[in-house]
Design a binder for these strands. Structure first.
Lengths: 341, 341
DNA sequence: ATGAAAGCGCTAACAC
DNA sequence: GTGTTAGCGCTTTCAT
């Protein structure tokens, strides 16, 4: 066992304890170069005995290599980004790379700051949510000299690579399905988030298709904060009180949609006959509700996975030819709240 | 604007661009020591112009200071730890410190590995979930020479500091409330997680109180994976088919409890008259369900906050006298599924 | 108020 | 297979 000393141990300590040079100790600890089995075991056991923990700070400075991938996301609190992280982890686990995550709370200035902080650790790559950044952030990304993958959204021009879905198209597809099912009086509910560009793009795609058919959103409501399930319930109640003629409610996420669905069931409203519903995200969590909300999968796991693969591949071989624009295609699940025609 | 060069800029580049010594540039960038207003602005504008991003690796090595706090948690996918992280963030935002999170998937060996990786970056402090670790992990923690706070649980002896609730007590309190309400035929459902020590402790406390009254758990079921809501539904159905005499169901978390609640409502079972229910965690998400599940708050936000405060205080003044054992007291909410007596 | 020198703990590059 | 030397980019310390 170790005695608790003030100063962390260094290579030198291990070197002195074994009589082996620092350099060879370093080689053993990193599995680099040829070392005789004898010294190898001697060093290894001494390092363990002493409780030596390598100093990556020094190692990174000397080797100019940092096996960190900066992952920058807007939020941890809605299940979509944790799932992306899971996908990233799955891939990076098989490499030397380690993800480090930063959270921006959907604020561009905070994103800029977080990015700056992370870049100052000289990571080997960056995965960052969205295509919209401040000019300064974009400049940092492009001059960092490392692979950058912008994820979630593909409606726009990336700094380097991008992996995601087209949210505009997602909105369009859902609008088509709704119109095809015969609904014509549509209400919309979503977050009060001018900075959630993906939600905005879905909305734009959605209204675009409606407009082509001469249909307009007849009522809308936005919320912020609080339990999404409860908000969906409240907003649905309020909207239907206000606009009883509506025959479809489009929610910008599954949680508020589920709240609406629960409310309508309690009221004995027939879904999808009297009113149809749809959300967005394909939240696994909601399986288990009495009825399944129509939704669209956002391919979160796959996005994380693919993004990590791009970073890993590019670091492995900087010359490799890699597909830098990956657009995944989400599928609609009709569930029990959207008529199928 | 910057031209995209291969090599990241160094202090020297800024120094040469301004004609100011590296040392003074460094001082300006860190707001340390006296620098004339004139050189200060000159340096600042040049740094910005060039797009200089400091190299924290080098800075950390030279100064022997790393403003990182390692946060090690079992999982990101169940909302409890993200909330702890939020609490930590709130506090650290007002300091120089930055959290870096590692995930262990409830596996001791992975925890050990993650801890080792993180310590090799020489963080200024560690916040780690749980009191149970491998011997090696415990040794690393105690010999790291930095503040360590073990969180969530206080039923045990910490390496250094601890902040949490007593899960044994939480289990006991819930058992008391259930017995007091007159229920006697109790079923239990939970995750199949031999390594979730906190769930285990709650269960132990729970059965301990029951035993004193001569009551025993009459049926139990464990699950793993999948949507918790759906699992709660399925397990509840199965258990009641098997053990129709049960008059109370205790769930190890709110999500499966909510699944059970939804199922019972559909079946027209009277809750809490015919059957009572309780979960654990106080998940805000569930507000918005037709009826509120009885539960117990795990004080997640507060735990994160307090843990971060301990780290920050200790780093600010290593001599300061700090309360190192903080036990928070969760409160029962009876909701609509547990009779009040 | 500013600069020069030394060195943080490690690894690349080159001996031997 | 092993050792030596130099230096990564910064900050500390000391000088001016």
């Amino acid at each position: 066992m170790t005695t608790d000393s003030k100063r962390p141990l260094t290579l030198r300590d291990v070197s002195e304890a074994t009589g082996v040079s620092e350099m060879t100790v370093s080689r053993v600890l990193r599995n680099r170069g040829d070392v005789s089995e004898k010294t190898r075991t001697k060093v290894l056991s001494a390092a363990k005995e002493l409780g030596y923990v390598p100093n990556k700070i020094a190692g990174a400075l000397a080797s100019n290599r940092v096996n960190l991938v900066a992952v920058i996301i807007p939020s941890l609190s809605n299940m979509v980004f944790p799932e992306v992280l899971t996908g990233i982890n799955k891939v990076l686990e098989n490499t030397e790379l380690q993800p480090v995550v930063g959270v921006t709370d959907y604020q561009p200035e905070k994103e800029e700051k977080v990015l700056y902080e992370m870049l100052s650790w000289r990571p080997s790559g960056v995965i960052i949510a969205g295509l919209e950044h401040t000019d300064a952030a974009r400049a940092m990304l492009s001059s960092a000299g490392i692979p950058v993958v912008e994820i979630m959204d593909t409606d726009g021009k990336p700094v380097d690579a991008m992996v995601g879905i087209s949210h505009r198209r997602a909105g369009r597809e859902m609008a088509k399905a709704i119109l095809k099912a015969g609904y014509r009086h549509i209400g919309f509910m979503g977050t009060k988030m001018p900075l959630d560009h993906r939600a905005r793009k879905r909305f734009e795609g959605f209204t675009e298709v409606l407009a082509k058919e001469g249909v307009e959103i007849e009522d809308r409501e936005f919320y912020s904060g609080g339990s999404a399930l409860a908000k969906g319930r409240e907003m649905t109640q309020a909207m239907l009180a206000r606009s009883p003629e509506l025959d479809f409610l489009y929610y910008s996420n599954d949680m508020i949609g589920a709240g609406g669905l629960l409310y309508l069931q309690e009221q004995g409203v027939s879904v999808p006959g009297q009113i149809g519903l749809a959300g967005f995200n394909g939240v696994e969590l909601l399986q288990g509700l009495p009825r399944q909300l129509a939704t669209m999968d956002a391919c979160r796991l796959e996005i994380g996975r693919k993004a990590a693969e791009i970073i890993a591949a590019q670091l492995e071989d900087p010359e490799a030819v890699i597909e830098k624009h990956v657009t995944l295609t989400p599928t609609i699940s009709y569930g029990d709240t959207l008529k199928r025609r």
